[in-house]
C-alpha cells in the first residue's frame, strides 16, 4: 500500500460565527499533497486560500467563533482528533510556514542567529548554541548566503528584503518538515528578487523532498513553481489539475479570467478581475492526473 499523502483534505468547511450571524468561508474543499509534491493554490484575496493554510497549521482551531468541519489529515493523522498541544507539536517540526513580507515576519529585536537557534530547538530542545550556529550556517549556505557570520549576527532591519526572504526560507526548512506552507511568499519584494528567491526555494525543496503548498494570487508565479494547481474562488475549488494541463487548457470561466489577468499581475499587484460572473460558480473541473 502506498504511504498516506503528506496532506489530505476532504470536504473542509469553515464558518465564522459572530454577533450578526454565521458567514461561511469555505464550502467543502478537497485537496491532496503527496510526498515531495509542490502544489499551488491560486485565488483572489478573500477567496479563502490563506485560511486553509491556517487550518492546516492548526492556528485557526483556537480562534473564537471559527467552526471547522470536514477532514484534515497530516501524514494520515486526523487533525480534528488532536489536542491543542498536539497540534502545536507539529508546527515548526513537521510543518512550517513562509510569510508574505519577510522583514516584518522576523522578530525585530533578536538577531537572525538567535531566531535560528529558537527554531532549531523546536526540533531538538537540547541543541547547544554552537551546534545551532553550525546547523544554521549550513542551511544558510544552501540558500546561497555567503557571509553567513554577518547575517547570523544581524537584525532583520539590517538586511535587505531578499536576504530576509532567504533567511525565512532557510529557517522554514532547517528542521526538515514534511510540509511547507508558503503564503504569498515574496509578494512584498520586487519582482526580480522574488523570482530569484523562488528559484532558490524550488531547488531547496526538491533536494530535501519537502512537500509544498504554495498559495498565491498570481498564476504566473505559481506556474514556475508548482506541479499541480488548485484554483479557488469564494471558498470553492473551481478547477484542479497538473500545471501544464491547466495552462494549456483552462476550462473553468474563472480560471480563464485569472489567466487573462496574468500580464497585469507580473508587477506583483493584486489581481483585479473586473467583472464578477455567474459562471464563476460553475461546477469544479478536474484535469486528468499526471501519471505518477
Amino acid at each position: 500500500m502506498r504511504d498516506a499523502p503528506t496532506l489530505s483534505i476532504s470536504d473542509l468547511t469553515l464558518s465564522f460565527r459572530n454577533w450578526s450571524g454565521v458567514s461561511q468561508v469555505l464550502h467543502g474543499i478537497d485537496l491532496d499533497i503527496h510526498k515531495g509534491e509542490r502544489v499551488g493554490l491560486v485565488g483572489e484575496s478573500g477567496s479563502g486560500k490563506s485560511v486553509i493554510a491556517r487550518i492546516i497549521l492548526g492556528t485557526l482551531h483556537d480562534v473564537k467563533g471559527a467552526q471547522i468541519g470536514g477532514d484534515v489529515r497530516l501524514g494520515g493523522r486526523d487533525m480534528a482528533g488532536m489536542s491543542k498541544s498536539e497540534r502545536g507539536e507539529l508546527r515548526g517540526t513537521e510543518l512550517s510556514m513562509i510569510f508574505q513580507d519577510p522583514t516584518t515576519a522576523l522578530n525585530p529585536v533578536y538577531t537572525i542567529g538567535m531566531q535560528f537557534l529558537e527554531v532549531l530547538r523546536r526540533g531538538d530542545s537540547g541543541m547547544s548554541a554552537e551546534d545551532g550556529k553550525v546547523r544554521s550556517a549550513e542551511i544558510l549556505g544552501e540558500v546561497s548566503i555567503t557571509d553567513v557570520d554577518r547575517v547570523l549576527e544581524s537584525y532583520p532591519f539590517q538586511l535587505s528584503g531578499g536576504m530576509n526572504q532567504r533567511v525565512m526560507i532557510a529557517m522554514a526548512l532547517v528542521n526538515e518538515p514534511q510540509l511547507l506552507l508558503a503564503d504569498e511568499p515574496g509578494t512584498a519584494l520586487d519582482v526580480t528578487v522574488q523570482a530569484q528567491t523562488l528559484e532558490l526555494m524550488r531547488n531547496l525543496v526538491e533536494q530535501h523532498g519537502t512537500s509544498v503548498l504554495f498559495i498565491s494570487h498570481n498564476l504566473g508565479v505559481v506556474r514556475e513553481f508548482a506541479d499541480r494547481i488548485y484554483v479557488i474562488y469564494k471558498g470553492r475549488i473551481v478547477e484542479r489539475g497538473p500545471t501544464a494541463s491547466i495552462f494549456a487548457d483552462p476550462r473553468h470561466p474563472y480560471t480563464k479570467a485569472l489567466m487573462a489577468a496574468i500580464p497585469r499581475l507580473t508587477g506583483g499587484g493584486v489581481p483585479d478581475i473586473a467583472e464578477e460572473s455567474e459562471s464563476f460558480f460553475d461546477p469544479m473541473i478536474t484535469h486528468g492526473e499526471a501519471p505518477e
Binding site: G88, G92, T93, E118, L181
Partner: peptide, 21 residues
C-alpha cells in the same frame, strides 16, 4: 504583528511567545 504569527507557526508555546517574542 506578522512576527508573532510567524512564532505561532513555529509552534512555540503561548507562554514562550508572550515572554520572549
Amino acid at each position: 504583528q506578522p512576527y508573532i504569527e510567524m512564532a505561532q507557526s513555529y509552534g512555540f508555546s503561548e507562554r514562550r511567545i508572550a515572554s520572549k517574542f
